[in-house]
Design a binder for these strands. Structure first.
Length: 572
RNA sequence: UGCCCGAUGGUGUAAUUGGCAACACGUCUGACUCUGAAUCAGAAGAGUCCAGGUUCGAUCCCUGGUCGGGCAACCA
């Protein structure tokens, strides 16, 4: 069984989609290959703008682009689209590099920046001007916007539309030389002001920005616009399939127009658009995520409640889990909203096979075993029943234990397979105990449960065959180690947090209880040495990982995801 | 009133020379279980947005609608 769980030969892995079907992008690539385009070369890229942290939607794109390159024996580039120095920062470059690497997408030696191509872009711009296909416009942005018309009305040509090539060249060179102030002039492509496609109405190619660029410093005071820089960067890198999201669909004619201006041989990059990822109970726009960070609704970009890659990593998600998720989600052009349960299923699937099982009690209740004679003994426990090579460990057992508070009920409902007066349960890996009586404190809360144990029932022992309905996790009170445990819930109360009445804000849907910090949790002693990032299954509770702020003297665990719990579900 | 996309169970995705709809998640049963997990077995749930047309036959092709999304930064 365990062999077939290996992702490589697991027939259920999305690697083998039903019927060997391909998504629409693969269909396009297959067709391109059949037609012999680009000498059969496949080359993709991921082109983030370094103006924020990457989120799981980007992860889908990265995995898609990298996966395609792998599948077709092609190459994958990482390119920063850094054409707007005002919004872009080195911090974001660093985080993106870390995230892409962590996901396992390997760009080898092909890390690029659009700013690497500024000189070439400038040269091409002069060429386009020389050919009469671009001009310098002296009008302010507001006027240009006005002249652009609306989707239903054609635009009108700028009074500077027909400047001579010589004058355009001169002005453009002086723009570059820094003779003008920000916004004083722009370079525009000369296409068609009456095009039904707004993007073809003489789009801006360069604007003047006397700003410091995170890479080129003060070398430039004119910066290329996205449309102008993007396709040309693809061209320079030899990208064959330039995959982006749906909102760029209307940009494609412009992408092609720009490529037309500089293409010199058969090779040509092709833009393909797919629908971005959306997930229930979360928001997925950089702007909104930035807002949550800036306005302190979360503790930072890597807050475990954030759908950012760094947040998911800190939460305990693994690259494999995200890969599984991306495969299940698929690729298409229709708008979609993925049930967050699919994400949770993916991380459980990944963690179930890899994470060692340990015992931890989140909300301790004292259990005294009245007839237990010894001080303590060591119990041998399996580290991972899913992994035959997982090995075993020793855990102390004593006459004073701690169990989960919710595992004891004075007056249990039917089918409650846990502890209650007169009932028996097995302590995982140890003995069967029976609840004889319990004590309450002044407030009437249960303070202590008194049990007796059956010495013959020890796991693995001769009399261990006896069956009881329930099995509880536990820790030995004198040996247990303290820990803080952070429980995360969905960040938003609504499945569709952005769906709000006119004038209201999505932040109104924030879940006030998305973070619950539990102090005084007790974990088995071996966990004291757990290192940040380590992942465990706390038996019967869920998957947890050691937070980056955790130390041996101040253990902090993050709950990645709870185990499925059909009992809880049946109880409503 | 323009242009561009899209529409298949609750949610995603598939059905690739047109042959009465498959897989995953979720849901519900049951088995097994020293994790009420995992695993295993099974069930319910769509007749493919609508109307025409082509065809022996349409999720697939054509026409016309309807609904949803996108497009008017010197953002990407």
């Amino acid at each position: 069984m365990t062999e077939s769980r290996n992702p490589e030969n697991d027939p259920k892995s999305a690697e083998s989609r039903p019927g060997g079907s391909v998504n629409f992008i693969e269909a396009i690539i297959n067709e391109d290959l059949k037609q012999g385009k680009n000498n059969g070369r496949i080359h993709t890229r991921f082109p983030p703008e370094p103006n924020g942290y990457l989120h799981i939607g980007h992860a889908k794109s990265i995995l898609l682009n990298y996966g395609l390159a792998k599948k077709y024996n092609g190459k994958f580039n990482l390119r920063f689209d850094d054409t707007n120095p005002i919004k872009e920062e080195q911090e974001y470059v660093d985080s993106i590099l870390e995230d892409v690497k962590w996901l396992g997408a390997d760009w080898e030696d092909r890390l690029f920046f659009a700013s690497d191509f500024f000189d070439q872009l400038y040269e091409w711009a002069e060429k386009i001007i020389s050919e009469g296909n671009a001009y310098v416009d002296d009008q302010p942005a507001t006027v240009i916007a006005q002249q652009r018309g609306t989707p239903t009305q054609p635009g009108i040509e700028s009074p500077f539309h027909d400047r001579s090539v010589e004058e355009n060249l001169d002005l453009f060179r002086r723009m570059k030389a820094g003779e003008f102030r920000d916004g004083e002039k722009v370079l525009r492509a000369k296409i068609d002001m009456s095009s039904p496609n707004m993007h073809m109405r003489d789009p801006v190619m360069y604007r003047i920005l006397h700003a410091h660029h995170h890479r080129t410093g003060n070398k430039w005071c004119i910066y290329p616009m996205y449309d102008w820089a993007h396709g040309e960067s693809d061209y320079l890198e030899g990208i064959t399939h330039s995959i982006c999201t749906l909102e760029f669909e209307v940009h494609r004619p412009l992408y092609n127009w720009f490529v037309d201006q500089i293409q010199t041989d058969e090779y040509r990059p092709r833009q393909i658009e797919f629908a971005r990822l959306n997930i229930t109970y979360t928001v997925m726009s950089k702007r909104k995520l930035l807002e949550l960070v800036n306005e302190k609704f979360v503790e930072g970009w890597d807050d475990p409640r954030m759908p950012t890659i760094s947040g998911l990593r800190r939460r305990g998600y693994t690259p494999e889990s995200l890969r599984l998720f991306a495969e299940k989600v698929g690729v298409a052009k229709r708008d979609n909203v993925i049930d967050v349960a699919l994400l949770e299923h993916s991380i459980r699937e990944a963690l179930n096979r890899h994470s060692p099982r340990v015992m931890a009690v989140l909300n301790p209740l004292k259990v005294v075993i009245a007839n237990y004679p010894q001080q303590h003994e060591m119990i041998t426990l399996e580290n991972n029943p899913e992994d035959p090579e997982g090995g075993t460990r020793e855990v102390p057992f004593s006459g004073t234990l701690l169990i989960e508070r919710e595992d004891f009920l004075v007056d249990p409902p039917k089918k409650f397979f846990r502890l209650a007066p007169g009932l028996e349960v097995r302590l995982k890996g140890a003995y069967i105990i029976r609840c004889e009586e319990y004590k309450t404190d002044d407030a009437g809360n249960v303070a202590e449960v008194i049990c007796t144990y059956d010495p013959d029932s020890k796991s693995g022992g001769a009399g261990s065959q006896r069956k009881v309905k329930g099995t509880l996790h536990w820790v030995s009170a004198p040996h247990a180690v303290d820990a803080q445990v952070r429980m995360f819930d969905r960040l938003f109360l609504r499945e569709d947090p952005e769906n709000v009445p006119e004038g209201e804000d999505y932040k109104k849907n924030l879940n006030p209880d998305s973070l619950q910090i539990l102090e005084g949790c007790k974990v088995e002693p071996g966990l004291k040495e757990a290192m940040p990032g380590e992942k465990f299954q706390f038996q019967r509770l869920g998957y947890f990982c050691v937070d980056k702020l955790s130390t041996p003297d101040n253990l902090i665990f993050n709950r990645t995801v709870p185990l499925r719990d059909s009992w809880a579900r049946s109880q409503g």
